[in-house]
Design a protein around this nucleic acid. Structure first.
Length: 306
DNA sequence: AAGACGAAAGTGGTTGA
DNA sequence: TCAACAACTTTCGTCTT
């Protein structure tokens, strides 16, 4: 977390104490807890230069290398006009040479099945992640995972979309901004089960280290979607802390626990949401919310009046 | 009438013999 | 490899506010 420019004001309380959580792609007001911009797109690398010398140093790095273009954005393009870089037309005797260059470019740039596969996959990945407003770090991670999978030929016999979805799901978790299977499935046009299957097999074959996501990581996003105040968010985290301490969360689906905690916190703060509303946002059923929240209320001795 | 409740049956995944 | 098992979902009838 770091402070951003003083010009940003919370639309809710007018406070200028805004923190920018780059990792979760959210702007958070420290006074009232309002999440200002859930879909914040990444700020890119920190490339500000403070004097001429630094600028020269940094500019020499050229365009950023990225994993989200199938050739990592490093290839040189041979232009199509019959002009050189100064705008002069190229003499006829050199045209043949230029033509040969282009031909080889066509042949080498997208060559082999892996490259073709990657090209499709990465455009897919970009589409999905931008429609979910995911920060660049996540995209890059996902692209890297997919690249590894493709190199190990793990994409054979699977649909590209499925593997991309799995890579994206894994990347979100690795970057500490977990999305639910349902959310990924939604943008990928697949079922939760398919995404889950693909992800498991990918994780196993690539040996990805996966720690189960903590319910905490979902809270700010869900609260934001539900339009509840920062108080609720704070309260939810308290409940979660208690619950974790008493081992009420292990073996339970983290999303369900998160959902139930929010349900309780919202009631305690007088900002009641129905089980249905929470179920919609979190993607678990009302029944699960009920089971979890009954459990929490009982074990944590919380008084609830509906 | 909306929301909460809980029983019952079904799903896909994990575990351990 | 298979059966038992836990967590979660779906469905649906009932109770509460």
């Amino acid at each position: 977390m770091q402070k951003v420019e003083e010009t940003v004001r919370c639309p809710e309380c007018g406070s200028t104490h805004i923190s920018n959580d780059y990792v979760r792609a959210e702007l958070v007001c420290e006074s009232c807890g309002l999440v200002i911009d859930d879909g914040l797109i990444d700020q890119g690398p920190e490339w500000r230069a403070f004097d001429k010398e630094q600028r020269e140093k940094k500019e020499r790095t050229g365009a950023p290398m990225t994993y989200t273009i199938h050739d990592k954005g490093l290839s040189t393009m041979v232009g199509w006009g019959n002009r050189d870089s100064y705008g002069r037309s190229i003499p006829t005797k050199n045209r043949a040479q230029i033509y040969r260059l282009r031909k080889w470019q066509r042949r080498t740039r997208i060559s082999g099945t892996i490259e073709k596969n990657l090209a499709v996959a990465l455009s897919n990945l970009n589409r999905m992640s931008s429609s979910m407003g995911l920060p660049r770090t996540v995209r890059e991670t996902a692209a890297m995972i997919y690249r590894k999978a493709a190199l190990k030929k793990l994409t054979r016999g699977r649909t590209i979309g499925g593997t991309v979805a799995a890579a994206l799901y894994s990347a979100c978790r690795q970057c500490g901004v977990p999305r639910t299977l349902g959310e990924i499935a939604n943008v990928a046009g697949l079922s939760k089960i398919e995404v889950g299957r693909n992800h498991r097999s990918l994780a196993r074959k690539l040996g990805l280290r996966m720690t189960p996501p903590s319910p905490r990581e979902y809270i700010s996003r869900f609260c934001n979607k539900l339009g509840v105040s920062g108080d609720v968010q704070t309260k939810t985290l308290e409940i979660l802390k208690e619950a974790t301490d008493q081992e009420l969360t292990s073996g339970r689906g983290p999303v369900g626990v998160a959902a139930a905690s929010i349900y309780i916190a919202a009631i305690l703060c007088g900002e009641r949401r129905t089980q249905f509303e929470i179920a919609e946002v979190t993607g678990v059923t009302e029944v699960t919310i009920r089971n979890r929240y009954k459990e929490l209320v009982r074990k944590l001795d919380i008084e609830i009046t509906l």
